[in-house]
C-alpha cells in the first residue's frame, strides 16, 4: 500500500515538473498557438492557421514598426489578437487612411473625406496596431493605441493546416511572417 502511494507521488511529481517545464519554455521562448479571424488576411488565414510567437519580444522588447505581434485585447484581456504594428511611440501617423466615403446611387465614386488629414502622435510606451485586412479588422482605429505591456510576443512564422502536409517543399504551408516596412523605391 505504501509502495503504491510512493509510486503515485513519484509519477505525480514527474508530471508536475514536466508540465511546468513546458509551460516555462512556452512563456519564455516560443509558443505555438492557433489564430482565428479575418483581420490578418492574407498574411494569416481566417481559420486553422497556427503561429509561432517569439516571447523574447514581449512587453515590446526590440519590436519595430511593421512587425506582427500577439497582444491582449485591451477591452477583453482574456482574448488575444494578432495585429501588425503600424506606429511606434512618438510616430506621427494617420488614424485611418483607408477610410472611404462614397455616394450611393449612380455616382459610385470613391471619396476620401479627411482620412488623409487626421493625424495622431503615438503616446510613449504605446503602439498603434492594425490588422492586415483593413476592411475587416477591429484594431487601434477603434480602441486607440495599446500599451506595450499588453504585447505578449512577435509572430515569426506560421503553419497553415488548411494546406496539405507536403506542398512546394514545405510542411503544412510553413512560412516566415516578415516585417514589411521596406524602402520605397
Amino acid at each position: 500500500m505504501l509502495d503504491s502511494v510512493k509510486t503515485f507521488t513519484k509519477i505525480l511529481s514527474y508530471i508536475i515538473r514536466g508540465g511546468c517545464t513546458i509551460h516555462v519554455f512556452q512563456s519564455t521562448f516560443i509558443e505555438f498557438t492557433e489564430t482565428r479571424g479575418e483581420s490578418m488576411l492574407p498574411t494569416l488565414n481566417s481559420a486553422n492557421d497556427f503561429v509561432f510567437s517569439d516571447k523574447h519580444y514581449r512587453n515590446g522588447r526590440d519590436l519595430k514598426i511593421g512587425d506582427c505581434i500577439v497582444a491582449l485585447k485591451p477591452t477583453d484581456p482574456d482574448q488575444r489578437v494578432c495585429k501588425r504594428i503600424t506606429g511606434m511611440p512618438g510616430d506621427l501617423i494617420l488614424i485611418d487612411p483607408s477610410l472611404k466615403n462614397y455616394y450611393n446611387g449612380n455616382k459610385q465614386e470613391i471619396e476620401f473625406e479627411d482620412s488623409f488629414n487626421k493625424y495622431i502622435r503615438v503616446p510613449k510606451g504605446h503602439v498603434w496596431v492594425t490588422g492586415d485586412n483593413l476592411a475587416h479588422s477591429l484594431d487601434s482605429r477603434s480602441y486607440n493605441s495599446i500599451p506595450l505591456g499588453l504585447v505578449k510576443g512577435k509572430i515569426i512564422a506560421a503553419n497553415d493546416f488548411n494546406k496539405p502536409f507536403w506542398e512546394n517543399g514545405v510542411i503544412y504551408g510553413f512560412r516566415k511572417i516578415e516585417n514589411n516596412y521596406v524602402d520605397e523605391a
Binding site: E38, P42, G66, T86, L134, E184
Partner: peptide
Amino acid sequence: CTLKSLTQFECS
C-alpha cells in the same frame, strides 16, 4: 530621411 512603405490590404 528615407522614404519607407508598409503595404496592408483590403479584402472582400
